[in-house]
Computed example of a mutant assay.
Amino acid sequence: MGDISSHTKNTDTAITTMGKKVKVGAVQAEPAWWDLEGSVNKVISLIETAGKDGVNVLGFPEVFVPGYPWSIWTVDSFSNGELIHKYMANSLKRVSPEMDRIREAVKKAGIFVVLGYSERAGASVYIAQSFIDPTGQIVLHRRKIKPTGVERAIWGDGQADSLVNVFDSPQFGKIGGLNCWEHLQPLLRYHEYSQGVEIHVASWPYFCEDAEGVPHHIKADTNRSATQFMALEGACFVLLATQILTNEHRETVKIGEFPGMKSPGGGFAMIFAPDGAPLVKPIPAGEEGILTADIDLSAIDYAKQMIDVVGHYSRPDLLSLNVNKEAAKHVHYI
């Protein structure tokens, strides 16, 4: 991983209004591809670095454990068979010695972490986020509601309980999270706003800025813009966390010569203010680091004076959202 601390970036100008002050961090780093133990070690190292730097809330990329298998988009499923078998074996169980190590690291650092990982549950895997508080407890757990495209051949759907995606932290405010193209689902975003999110963790895999010969919607700038729009629409702080890919591991991920995935590259991490403004200078796309910013949650009020989409800037008498909060069960006993 190298000296990750040397790449930590701070906001140039902290928001100075009076209110609850929080230091936030967004990870941009390469996973320990298909290696559960290596992934846990890297997660712990990043948590330790963030803790030493005074970060209060830290966001990780989508399926950072054990990495995003981009070859599911570029190689046929039969050729990917052995890789996916290995991938499932190295996915992280929510209740496991490996998770206990991560939870202990969070407790020792005294921070709040939103961890993105491929969750192994029985014989299935899910694109998951666990919210771990400074005592090391998982206080909220969710799964991606609808995996995107060919992801559905690997990961299962989240159920209704995963719609609750905001936790009210006594120390650091209301913290929410979504994975990747969940940010393109307007009703899902709206439901999160209704939960009063103040700090949102946007977990993403890696996308390239200058990708040629690929649809525009899988380019880094497009998905950065989608995340920025959530900050603007929801009037909340947003931590955009992403993976990267180095030349060393191009063969490991079996990306081949796919034009959309250049290496080193793929990182597009950022921290956005409630009015959509970028708060930090980006880390170069192929480098690892933790973006950090000192924020003041009272700045949200200034943004919501203009735009509160679940308050004064809404018309629930004309448009409203129905939500099923009951998770479906595979077996019913009568």
Rank of each mutant, 00 (worst) to 15 (best):
T11Q: 10
Q305P: 01
T17C: 09
Y302C: 08
I300K: 11
I132R: 11
Q185K: 07
L178K: 15
E212A: 05
Q137R: 13
T227L: 05
Y126D: 00
E48D: 11
S320C: 06
V65I: 15
A123I: 03
A29R: 03
E209D: 07
S118L: 02
C208D: 10
I44E: 07
V214C: 03
D301W: 11
E82T: 11
R224K: 12
P170E: 07
S91N: 07
N322F: 11
G260S: 06
F167R: 07
T13G: 06
Q159I: 05
I300Q: 09
E248I: 08
N41K: 15
I154F: 06
H312S: 12
Y117G: 01
V323D: 05
G116I: 02
M18A: 09
G19P: 00
M230A: 09
V309H: 04
Q159D: 06
D35A: 05
S91R: 03
K281D: 04
G19E: 05
R152I: 14
G51R: 06
N223I: 09
I283H: 02
F207E: 03
E233Y: 15
L245C: 13
S124M: 07
S45Q: 13
Y333R: 12
E151Q: 15
S79R: 13
Q305E: 15
I334G: 08
E288V: 02
F207L: 14
Y313M: 04
G176N: 12
S5L: 04
A121P: 01
G25E: 01
V24D: 01
A299Q: 12
R103M: 14
E192G: 04
D133P: 00
F112T: 02
Y313N: 08
K20G: 01
K86E: 14
Y193A: 07
M18P: 03
G136R: 10
K144A: 12
S77G: 04
E192D: 07
I290N: 01
T135W: 00
D275H: 02
D12V: 07
A14I: 08
S298R: 04
H332I: 15
L291P: 01
K107F: 05
K146A: 13
S45E: 10
P284Q: 05
I175E: 04
I334S: 15
D100Q: 08
P259I: 01
K52C: 08
G110P: 12
G311T: 03
T8H: 09
T135Y: 00
G116K: 06
E326Y: 01
C236F: 04
L163S: 08
L318I: 13
F167W: 15
S124A: 09
